[in-house]
């Protein structure tokens, strides 16, 4: 157990180092002067330039530069943004909650729909209901996400006029940003007509969440379905069928658990998809989150921002993956077996 943890953490560290090296080298790879790229200050006088070069250790060897970069990153100093000239970390933290909020709801929707549907399809393998679920999932899986967004807008905003097309809130309302999570902020605010604001915020959430959830949900359905089919063929399920359990007991106690456990590590893939899709969804729905911010940074050729976002997002992804693996290892007795066997 301990050795396993060490191994995972070792993997986490080496990967993080690789990522930071990549991110560091971006400063040199981007067109333009590294000093400007690292600091984010485009117009400098000669003495300022020299000073900065010294503080960033850019006059030293690459290795020392890298160490300095690492140190700055740890202190949360990613330089300032080209376009706004504000510290990147502040900018990042300002847009992060919106993205997390959106992804969280999408993840919730994904699991709430994906797991039961996948389970149902797997149990009823080769029956009509399975065919329907599986075909629909396969079809939805192939729709490019940006087109999903456009279709939703076309149908629900333009044709039906039901739901708003962009943003988090109608401009009418002004919610002071405290945590950055809109639904929490509304609760914390002292607006008079909270319920209206809530309705408005939720209405704004529906389309982006749905758009974002489509692809991960199809993935979950697929994973869950094949896992359930595999489990249903196992001798212990056959044996359990003769043990006097009701179908419900059988499914909840034996099938669901055994099917879910092995796919937990694959949820990393889910997060991967989620991050990618968030970027596009945010652009379509003008959602003021990280994706929008990164794309904006690229349009503006805001190199410090791009560099920082690569480092932060990639580190988050890796951490999530490793955490998932460790969590999987904790909850799955079979993993412990394999681990014990190879110790």
């Amino acid at each position: 157990m301990f050795v396993y943890l060490l191994r995972r953490i070792n993997l986490l560290f080496t990967t993080l180092i690789v990522i930071s090296v990549m991110s560091f080298s971006l400063g040199h790879l981007f067109p333009g002067d590294p000093v400007i790229n690292f600091s984010g200050k485009p117009s400098l006088t000669y003495s300022e330039y020299q000073d900065l070069s010294q503080t960033l250790a850019l006059d030293k060897s690459y290795f020392e530069q890298y160490l300095a970069y690492l140190k700055r990153s740890f202190n949360g100093d990613f330089g300032v943004s080209f376009s706004s000239q504000k510290p990147i970390l502040d900018e990042f933290l300002r847009v992060l909650p919106a993205s997390i909020e959106l992804s969280l709801y999408a993840l919730l929707v994904t699991l709430v729909f994906g797991l039961p549907l996948g389970l149902l399809a797997g149990i009823k393998n080769n029956r009509l209901i399975d065919r329907i679920i599986f075909s629909v999932a396969t079809i939805l899986n192939s729709i490019p996400i940006f087109w999903v967004g456009l279709l939703f807008i076309l149908i629900f905003t333009l044709n039906m006029n039901w739901l708003p097309m962009s943003g988090r809130l109608t401009l009418l309302y002004e919610v002071p940003s405290i945590t950055g999570f809109l639904l929490v902020d509304i609760a914390l605010s002292d607006l008079a007509n909270k319920s209206y604001v809530y309705t408005d915020a939720l209405r704004h959430l529906i389309l982006p969440t749905a758009t974002l959830a489509v692809l991960p949900a199809t993935l979950v359905i697929g994973m869950m379905r094949s896992s359930v089919i595999h489990v249903m063929g196992m001798p212990y399920i056959k044996a359990a069928q003769t043990k006097g359990l009701t179908s419900w007991q059988l499914i909840t106690r034996h099938v669901f658990r055994n099917a879910l456990l092995p796919i937990i590590p694959q949820f990393g893939l889910l997060f991967n998809t989620l991050v990618t899709s968030t970027m596009i969804t945010e652009v379509i729905f003008s959602w003021p989150g990280i994706g929008n911010w990164i794309i904006e940074a690229i349009y503006q050729r805001d190199f410090p921002a791009i560099q920082a976002s690569l480092l932060i997002v990639a580190s988050m992804m890796i951490s999530i993956n490793v955490l998932l693996e460790i969590a999987h290892m904790m909850v799955n007795p079979l993993m412990r077996k394999e681990f014990n066997a190879t110790k």
Partner: peptide, 15 residues
């Protein structure tokens, strides 16, 4: 390889 694979492909392409 692990490091590169852990970055979402679109993000990598964007960078």
């Amino acid at each position: 390889l692990d490091a590169i694979l852990s970055i979402p492909s679109l993000l990598l392409a964007v960078v």
